[in-house]
Amino acid sequence: MRIAHVTDVYLPRLGGVELQVRDLATRQASAGHTTFVVTATPGPDPDDPPVPVVRLGAPGVGPYRAVRDHELCRVLREHRAEAMHVHVSAFSPLAWSAARLAGLHGVPTVVSVHSMWHDVIPVMRWYARRRGAARWPVDWAAVSTAAAAAVRDALDGTPVAVLPNGIDPAAWLAPPVPRDGPPTVVSVMRMVRRKRPRPLLHALFALHHAHPGRVRAVLVGDGPLLPRLRADIAAAGLTAGVRLTGALPRHEIRALLAAADLYVAPAHRESFGIAALEARCAGLPVVARRGSGVADFIEHGVDGWLVGSDAELVSTVSGLLASPGLLADVAGHNRAVVPHLHWDAVLAAAETRYAAAARLQDALVRA
């Protein structure tokens, strides 16, 4: 099958959607499909791209650029696309245009939503109704149960499947590192407001005050809030207890997870939580917010713990520091049991969605 992945954001811009689209298209190509990416993000292209990339749009700043309908249709025709996989966050002009054109260009189309719409449902519902999105001949999906519920609400009850992100669990499971010193709590995120690094930092401060010298923390990631976070740590006098690394390559993150004891995911509007899944695959127990996408692969009391507030997060982690045996039991389970969101399962789920999209196009032709 010739599959076009349409996404406003793509490499060399770094982010969760960009890497997932690259990995999905690459895995599908390895499985025998012909895949390519259509994006509005400018280059440069890598010297050895895993899949071909078509970059569209007028000159501008950033990935969001005007793309004419006929230009996108031309690319689909020239590359003989047999299926189109559209990747949407919220503001995704190219992706929304591709979904809207599904009935015109006749290519079976799956629309995957990668973000949580809970806080923007009124806006998304207004846009969807104005465009008639619920009537488009596309198969709607989202990356988690929580994300799908909000999309379904915005589309006035239109069916929305779950098509999760994928991971190679074995790539994250490293031999355990001998522990030296107090337990280490780790978190990996972009340092932006919606990921909630400052509330996490304040929670860590509370843990340090309650358990002086008994816990250390490492926060990985870059973003506009990083200087403010560094200032907060200095003002609290906790530079020895809380470390900010900035962005790290994957192999360094793997090494850090192998040496840690607990992973914390503080965002309550986390659509999926790929970093938390990577930590789970590395064998770490995970503490995350209830109602986020992380709940699709963290069962409370089995793979980790789900909490309803920052205060509950602090009390849960505090209790775990006092119960190292419980922490070790969950870590042992996570090292022994492979999570269900591996690439074989995700590729099969994508095939199911493409088949559903093809049936919608067949029904359109027969109508």
Rank of each mutant, 00 (worst) to 15 (best):
S271P: 12
P63E: 13
V302F: 05
R27S: 02
H333W: 13
A161E: 13
L262R: 05
A367H: 14
A4N: 08
A295D: 13
A331V: 04
A363P: 05
A58D: 02
A336E: 06
A133C: 07
D45M: 09
I121K: 02
A255G: 05
A141N: 06
G332E: 12
A149P: 00
G301E: 10
P59T: 09
H87T: 05
D153P: 00
D296V: 12
L229Q: 07
A102Y: 09
V264Q: 09
S115H: 05
V111S: 04
V6W: 06
W140Y: 10
T7P: 01
H33D: 10
M124I: 13
V111C: 08
D153N: 10
G221F: 07
A355R: 11
D156Q: 05
L226E: 09
A363Q: 12
W126D: 03
V186R: 01
R179I: 04
R366V: 13
R77M: 07
A128G: 12
R353C: 04
H79P: 00
P44W: 14
G60L: 11
V162A: 10
L163M: 12
D119T: 15
R22Y: 01
A247K: 03
E71N: 09
A295E: 15
P164Q: 11
P182W: 05
L244M: 07
L19I: 00
L207T: 12
V21T: 08
R254C: 12
M189R: 15
W126A: 14
A260S: 14
D261N: 13
S292D: 04
Y10Q: 11
A255T: 12
R190C: 00
R190I: 03
A148R: 05
I298C: 10
V185C: 04
R335Q: 03
V86A: 12
R68C: 00
V160E: 12
G16H: 03
P176M: 03
V220I: 12
V151G: 02
P224I: 08
M1C: 04
L226C: 00
Q28C: 01
R214M: 07
A322K: 07
L347Y: 08
L244T: 08
Y10W: 14
L360Y: 02
A25I: 06
S30R: 15
G43Y: 01
S309N: 07
V218Y: 00
C73F: 00
D119C: 03
R179K: 12
V286A: 07
I121H: 02
A240G: 15
H70D: 15
P164N: 08
L201K: 04
V21S: 05
A336Q: 11
M116Q: 11
V264D: 06
I3H: 00
A81Q: 06
F36S: 01
G157L: 12
W136A: 02
A150G: 15
